[in-house]
Design a binder for these strands. Structure first.
Length: 260
DNA sequence: ATGGTAGAAGGTCTA
């Protein structure tokens, strides 16, 4: 089963690129971030025509996530538990039930950016990460295969950014953000991309500004974390870097994992 | 020190 995550930066602008990529990559399950529309404006029919079940957690103008699956979905949940006043659409979760394999729970997330830091947006990011850790702990207790995939807006290590010193004060690379990410990772997850390639430079985002793509000024912030039971089924993982060089690209590229 | 780009929106705000 191939599971992918892609921050599309507007689902409707990116639709041609996404369909083209689906055709080539043939993912079974996809979580999307920054769809930037309400549920009614999500192009569900286009994906249903490709054979996907479609679940959307949208929002006007900002954020918005979706989950697409070739297999039946059970127990779809929208919103990260732990704060009833949080109305930002950043989390969707469901149990994916293939016909010929064990089920896998898939969590799609769009973690807050947190800039400028320090400040209220950074506080919101760190609180959101505490809630994500709680959700992860609850799911780990079930000892089932699950995957947490999405735009984490965290650069885990210095080798995941082209200019570590220049990013030292950024909310994506500050010590508190990285510590919170490690706290989640060290609960027992496997970082699928690092599992596949322990030492490579594997950026997933290049800013639209300052010719970042041309200079390869990238950062690695889109991640797929595997629970121990999912990691046992790990086959391969990758970053589809070429997508960034296409016409009208997202500033992120798709990241994927294959599990048995 | 500023601004550079992109998207939703039709103000600026977010990234």
């Amino acid at each position: 089963m191939k599971i992918a995550t892609f921050n599309v930066n507007s689902i409707n602008v990116r639709l041609p690129r996404i369909l083209e990529w689906f055709d080539k990559a043939k993912p079974d399950v996809v979580v999307l971030q920054e769809i930037k529309c309400v549920d009614e404006k999500f192009p569900a029919l286009e994906f249903e025509d490709c054979g996907y079940n479609v679940e959307v957690h949208g929002q006007k103008t900002y954020n918005g996530v979706a989950l697409l699956s070739k297999f039946p979905l059970d127990g779809v949940a929208r919103g990260l538990p732990g704060d009833k006043d949080d109305d930002q659409a950043r989390y969707i979760e469901a149990l994916v039930c293939p016909d010929d394999a064990e089920p896998v729970r898939v969590c799609g997330l769009y973690l807050p950016n947190g800039n400028p830091a320090p400040g209220p947006k950074y506080d919101y990011k760190l609180k959101w990460m505490t809630r994500l850790k709680k959700r992860a702990q609850a799911l780990l207790a079930d000892e089932e295969a699950f995957v947490m995939a999405g735009d984490f807006n965290v650069i885990p290590q210095a080798e995941d950014v082209y200019d570590p010193a220049g990013w030292a004060e950024d909310a994506l690379f500050r010590p508190e953000s990285r510590a919170a990410f490690r706290e989640i990772l060290y609960l027992g997850f496997t970082d699928a991309i690092r599992q596949q390639n322990p030492n490579g430079v594997l950026y997933t985002f290049w800013d639209y500004q300052r010719g970042a793509w041309e200079k390869d000024h990238g950062i690695r912030i889109d991640h797929i974390l595997l629970s121990p039971q999912a990691a046992d089924r790990f086959k391969a993982a990758g970053v589809d870097r070429k997508e960034r060089g296409k016409e009208k690209p997202s500033d992120h590229v798709p990241v994927w994992v294959e599990i048995a």
